[in-house]
Amino acid sequence: MERVDFRDQISNNKLRSYFLMAIIFVVFVLFGYVISFAFDPGFFFIIMIISIIFSLSYLLISYYNSDKIAVASVGAKLASREKHKQYYNLVEGLTIASGMPMPKLYVMESFQINAFASGRDPNNAVICVTTGALEKLEKRELEGVLSHELSHIANYDIRYMTIVTVMVGMIAIVSQIFLRSLWFRSGDSRNNGIFIVIGIIMAILAPIVVSLIQLSISRKREFAADASAVKFTRYPGGLVKALKKIQVGHFPEEKKVSKAVAPLFFSNPFKGWGSTHPPLEKRIEVLERM
């Protein structure tokens, strides 16, 4: 496996984040363009203005509230210091080891052993673990998992992944709206058939392409986060044991988790749904060589 320096990884992630945001914006405007021609070119300017305003506000709102959106979408609650003392202590230790600010800590109800991190930068980050992880993992194992999540924050993976998630959600919404609106189209036969076809093709293809992007990007990141997790704890054993516990455990699929946020998680919350994560065996193997 090629080695990536952390600083390169970070600037890479920042750059790609901005690039993606620009792409989202362009795609959105393009959608508006096609839609306006598909329906009525007379409304071109109005539709364009609306789509620009909508896409900008969608991007900005989700960028600045990504942590809250992610936490709310899985129904997680703020962890209390009294009840989850070990959780707090472990993360505090890890922030000392990594020199990072303390993220906000959340807990979500679930039998699965899982966790995720979100936010736009280390100063506005959250870590969320499942109650299953808190109950079933030993101290060092939990520490390994938390360290993995903290490295997602340190590497700015959270920003990038959040923006990708936002993009997936938005494109899905827009293509749905477009496809459905075709039903209500007035039956006049102006010369806009070609735009309707383009629109339909875009509406069908865009979500697929975007999910493929989403799948490919999150796998590499998991290896990188495992590696930096070990850099913080200097103890691969904890993470290995946690991964093995997830491997042998048979947990019911998580119903509350939207598929859009799956790549944010420590291990895939769904069975057999694409591969947002590299196989556990592979991750364990790489860690055991460290």
Partner: peptide
């Protein structure tokens, strides 16, 4: 006992970060 163990962890991490810096 738990508190003492966790502060010991933190001492170790603080030293690690010191050396890293």
């Amino acid at each position: 006992q738990r508190e003492l163990a966790s502060t010991e962890d933190k001492v170790a991490y603080a030293r690690q970060y010191y050396n890293d810096s």
